[in-house]
């Protein structure tokens, strides 16, 4: 439904997005995760048809954005990162205007405005001017706008920004419901828990390139291969630490008494470590892989910069 094929965007000598390819199927939610400046908004702007790519292609519902831009945009709902509506317009006026832009007219337009307003809890706000709305309600207006033409594909750039915790939960539920209704949803965030809670698949973008792409389980499975190991001995932790210094395949991350956290280079090393500890007749109390989280993977991929 949403397809990016080797998308690249350069601003002069600066490459904002490089060779990015992915697809989002109908009914699927893809979370676009990356630190600030990773190229998330640039990618979404290319997919929305706002910015043409420097190279590569994008398609919405099988329609190429360069060749059939208007037709593709008719099948697209887009919530920009800095969504703004004319402050002097009432919410109902704004939504009617946007519905008209998207080809709806007459009774159908009025009905659809009421429908999305109800869907997003905006019915009570329809007579309020856009300028007087809170950030949360403005976001809802933006999402309502994106939904007006019943688009099969939705692009949402940082949709949770400015929402309070309750609104986040509501908004998340609404997005999940939209996916169940068959919308393909691509949303970006630099807030990892939001992506973790909502997306079925995650694309981690770092410096304009795809650092990882897959379902949460796939990414965590991949991360598990390199996850740290916790060894707890009933013996002398310091002596074990000294002995471990001789093993090149292992790096000691920290030691707290007899509890050591180690970083190995792969699963095979774990087996050899286990055998080595057994040969030493180390009185082990615990030997386990620390279950990695998406956050661990994110940290490892994007380096020292942490998600907000």
């Amino acid at each position: 439904m949403i397809r990016a094929d080797r998308l690249s965007k350069r601003f002069g000598p600066v490459s904002a997005v490089e060779d990015l390819s992915f697809e989002v199927a109908a009914g699927e939610i893809l979370g676009f995760l990356g630190p600030n400046g990773a190229g998330k908004s640039t990618t979404l702007r290319m997919l929305s048809g706002y910015w043409p790519p420097s190279s590569g292609a994008a398609a919405i519902a099988g329609l190429d954005l360069a060749q059939s831009s208007l037709a593709a945009r008719r099948r697209l709902g887009y919530l920009p990162e800095a969504f703004a509506a004319p402050p002097e317009l009432r919410v109902s006026e704004y939504l009617r205007f946007r519905a008209g832009l998207k080809g709806l007219a007459g009774r159908e337009r009025r009905a659809r405005v009421q429908e999305v307003a109800q869907q997003l809890g905006l019915t009570e706000r329809l007579r309020q001017t856009c300028g007087s709305l809170s950030k949360g309600y403005r976001q809802r207006v933006g999402l309502a706008d994106a939904l007006l033409n019943r688009p099969p594909a939705l692009l949402l750039d940082e949709p949770f920004t400015g929402l309070d915790p309750l609104q986040r939960v509501e908004f998340r539920d609404q997005l999940a419901q939209l996916a169940r209704e068959g919308h393909a949803i691509l949303f970006s965030s630099h807030v990892l828990p939001e992506v973790d809670a909502l997306a079925e698949r995650v694309l981690i973008l770092h410096r304009g390139r795809c650092a990882a792409l897959g379902s949460r389980a796939e990414l965590i499975q991949a991360a598990r291969e390199e996850a740290p190991l916790r060894v707890v001995t009933a013996g002398d932790g310091a002596a074990l630490e000294q002995a471990l210094l001789g093993l090149a395949a292992w790096r000691l991350l920290r030691r707290e008494g007899g509890a050591l956290t180690l970083q190995a280079q792969g699963a095979a090393e774990r087996q050899s470590l286990f055998q080595w500890l057994a040969q030493r007749r180390e009185p082990m109390l615990e030997f386990r892989v620390l279950e990695p989280s998406l956050e661990d993977l994110f940290r490892r991929l994007v380096g020292p910069q942490e998600p907000a």
């Binding site: 929305s48 706002y50 208007l70 887009y78 920009p80 703004a84 509506a85 402050p87 946007r98 832009l101």
Partner: peptide, 14 residues
């Protein structure tokens, strides 16, 4: 100035 141009130029209108 208001930032409404992006929404306008991504609507299905030339």
């Amino acid at each position: 100035r208001l930032g409404t141009l992006e929404a306008l130029l991504t609507a299905p209108v030339s």
